[in-house]
Amino acid sequence: MEFEDKIKIFSSKINEKLEHIETEETTKTALILPFLKEVMGYDTTDPSEVKAEYTADIGAKKGEKIDLAILNSGSEIMLIECKTLGITLDKKHISQLYRYFNITDSELGILTNGLIYQFYTDSIKPGKMDKSPFLEINLLDLSEKDIIELKKFSKEQFDISKIKTRVDNLKYAHDIHQILSTEIDSPSDDLVRLFTKQVYDGTVTANVKNKFYKIIKNEFKEVIDEKVESRLNEALGRTNSELPLEVDDDEIITTPEEFEGYYIVKSIVSRIVDPDRIFIRDTKSYCSVLLDDNNHYPIIRLYFNNPRNLKIGLFDDFEKYNSGGRKTSMYPLKNLKELYGYEENMLKTVEVHLKEIKQKKRAKKNKK
């Protein structure tokens, strides 16, 4: 399974665990260790690779412990300090990680509460951990860029030299991103003056500054909206000259709820079938999750166009219409988590499809 699929499937299953996690130890066993194993590819059952309560006595420092250490040939490559789910990670939580980082050979430290992962290194002074992270990942709010960066820390991709060459760019990008976000929401006096002087020849009085503050803030929004619209048009494979004169209001758009539902279904049925065989196919009326990208092997239909009226179509009785299509049984959902209540239905449907595929292959082989 591709890394991208692993992280998205793992992320889709997090919400069902959240209400049951109240301690640091549960956070570690329910979220952090499974993440390291299922997504990042580290063997959490092998203490020579992932060690809990890792201790190293160096010089005058005795009994220093870190929650988790990822090792390679006995050397620390990543140190992980775990905190309880829900805790806001800040400077007061990095003290132990900071101390331990500074007395070991590790060049990477991670502070996490199971959802947020902050990555630290020693970019300013070798051997001394930076006070701010160079990368921060939220597993419930992943961008494609986050996934690309996170993949570099997986067991398969890990290369400390390549990671460290990216640290400066990531760190500065993170800080500049924060500055730009703040400026877009509330332009600073310096920025207002900078822009105003480029278009206004008079004296920048308080009234002029207030006037241009509103103009600049509004134009930020306009530029962003234009960029978003442009990217959407590119994604649809169109240029403005190719757009039809009339836009169909019923144009097929796969919603975030449909994608999330797809990943939930994929995580469920992956117990009995290769997840690479599970596909999503959208229509105007519903979104199908199919085995082998084949309409003859539907697993579930997601009627999620209206988020306030979620419904699913299941194939419980395995009956077919005269046309050959499979009959569905409709069920309402209060939220996407309720999909897990229909695991048995979906698994049974996949089993029936797999059996039918096997029979067809056998019959085809016998004809030969």
Rank of each mutant, 00 (worst) to 15 (best):
L236W: 06
Q359N: 14
L71C: 11
H177G: 14
T121M: 05
D225K: 15
Y340V: 04
L290M: 11
I268D: 04
N169T: 11
T283W: 03
N207W: 00
K355I: 00
E49A: 11
M330I: 15
L290S: 08
N210C: 00
A69D: 04
F212C: 04
Y117I: 01
E49V: 15
E24C: 03
Y297P: 02
D250W: 01
L291E: 07
S75D: 12
S11V: 10
E319F: 04
K152W: 07
F153S: 06
Q96A: 05
F35M: 03
H93F: 12
R277A: 07
E242L: 14
E319K: 15
E156G: 02
G86Q: 10
S285H: 08
A173H: 11
F119M: 00
S241E: 14
L140A: 01
I278N: 10
K355R: 13
D190P: 01
D90G: 13
T255M: 06
V273D: 09
N138T: 01
K337N: 15
S181T: 13
T328N: 09
E156P: 01
K368L: 10
L79M: 05
T239G: 07
R277I: 03
D316N: 11
K327G: 07
T26H: 13
K227C: 11
E107T: 09
L85V: 05
K51I: 10
E351M: 12
D43K: 10
V167F: 07
L140Q: 13
D293H: 14
Y117E: 01
E351G: 10
E260D: 11
E81D: 03
E38M: 13
S161Q: 12
E246G: 00
M78L: 13
L180N: 08
S181E: 15
F35K: 02
L314S: 09
Y120W: 06
D316T: 11
K348Q: 12
L79A: 02
G325C: 00
T203C: 00
I299T: 07
E319T: 13
E319C: 05
G324L: 07
C82Q: 02
T23K: 12
V273F: 09
F10Y: 15
P187M: 05
K334S: 15
R238T: 12
D248M: 03
H93N: 14
F318C: 08
N335L: 00
E260G: 01
E222N: 15
Y297H: 12
K209V: 03
I299H: 04
L108D: 01
V350L: 07
K8A: 01
R277W: 06
D249I: 06
L333E: 04
N295P: 08
D146R: 05
F259V: 14
S161D: 13
D317C: 00
K360L: 13
G324F: 10
Y98M: 08
